[in-house]
């Protein structure tokens, strides 16, 4: 630790000022726009938002998708993370590499693949028709299911990685210790593994939830205007309706969800550290 504060500030300030000017100030002005309508300070834009059944529906759908994707990612994540940590160290590294890799591939490309898979002439429909389950292609795209699958594929790796490192950081031998004391696998999971990996679960969960709720590409491509989420709704409000006030209301709701989840995460993480 160095004592010289002036030196420390000199190193820290350029980045802080840059982020503040380029980023925080414009965002705050944007957000204030939602409370400043026709020259008056008012919350009418917010009451309008919650009074509109379409807006409420989109908000609810966005939350529902986010929660569902996070839950399913957690379940698949645990199963995968258990399988990964049971591998030998070298294949474990390779497997983590495979899980990380998709994160580096353009989300446009990854989402595009689902068009090929779920489209009218896509794999799933071809398979269904070959087996004879259906005579003509069923509509899979532009549905909540399609958006759900796309988001899950996009963000699952984040959950898996968080849980793998949580499992790796679990103290040795606590699982066999619980086993010897008479616990079955379900009891071991809920009484030992879950509490000891809670932090990883919360971190992974936050990344997946925030990612899903604020994603643009997946709902835009796989949901279209049929399955609007807050982000695609915001985009429409700006480009089609040119309604900046409403856009700024949605922006604030998005920021609240994102910040709220992150603060919750920090709370849970520090509660554990104090314990």
């Amino acid at each position: 630790m160095f004592q010289n504060r002036a030196e420390g500030f000199a190193l820290a300030l350029p980045a802080a000022i840059f982020a503040a000017v380029i980023f925080i100030v414009p965002v705050i002005i944007l957000l204030s726009g939602g409370m400043h309508v026709n020259g008056h300070w008012t919350l009418s834009a917010y009451t309008d938002f919650f009074a509109s059944s379409l807006d409420r529906l989109v908000l609810w759908r966005t939350l529902k998708l986010g929660i569902l994707v996070t839950l399913v990612a957690a379940i698949i994540g645990y199963a995968s993370a258990f399988a990964i940590v049971s591998l030998s160290p070298s294949s474990r590294g390779r497997m983590i590499g495979i899980v990380v890799l998709p994160l580096m591939i353009s989300p446009v490309a990854r989402t595009y693949a689902w068009l090929v898979i779920l489209g009218r002439t896509g794999i799933v429909n071809q398979a269904l028709m070959t087996v004879g389950l259906t005579d003509e292609p069923i509509r899979l795209l532009f549905s909540q299911t399609a958006v759900f699958v796309g988001l899950l594929q996009l963000f699952l790796p984040l959950m898996v990685i968080s849980l793998v490192s949580a499992l790796e950081n679990m103290p040795n031998d606590v699982v066999p210790a619980a086993r010897v004391l008479g616990a079955n696998w379900l009891q071991i999971f809920f009484k030992v593994i879950l509490p000891l990996t809670r932090e990883g679960l919360v971190i992974g969960g936050t990344l997946v939830f925030v990612g899903s709720v604020t994603a643009y590409i997946t709902p835009a491509i796989l949901g279209g205007s049929k399955v609007l989420t807050l982000v695609t709704l915001l985009y429409q409000r700006v480009t089609i309706a040119n309604d900046l006030v409403s856009a700024s209301v949605i922006a604030l709701i998005l920021i609240v969800m994102s910040f709220g989840t992150n603060i919750l995460l920090r709370k849970i993480a520090t509660a554990r550290n104090r314990a």
Binding site: V174, A177, R179, V180, G182
Partner: peptide
Amino acid sequence: LGANKRQVGLVFQSYALFPH
């Protein structure tokens, strides 16, 4: 017989206490 049914006690070298 599974470890949870065997009624055998084991004290681990690392103690393996549940930290939570």
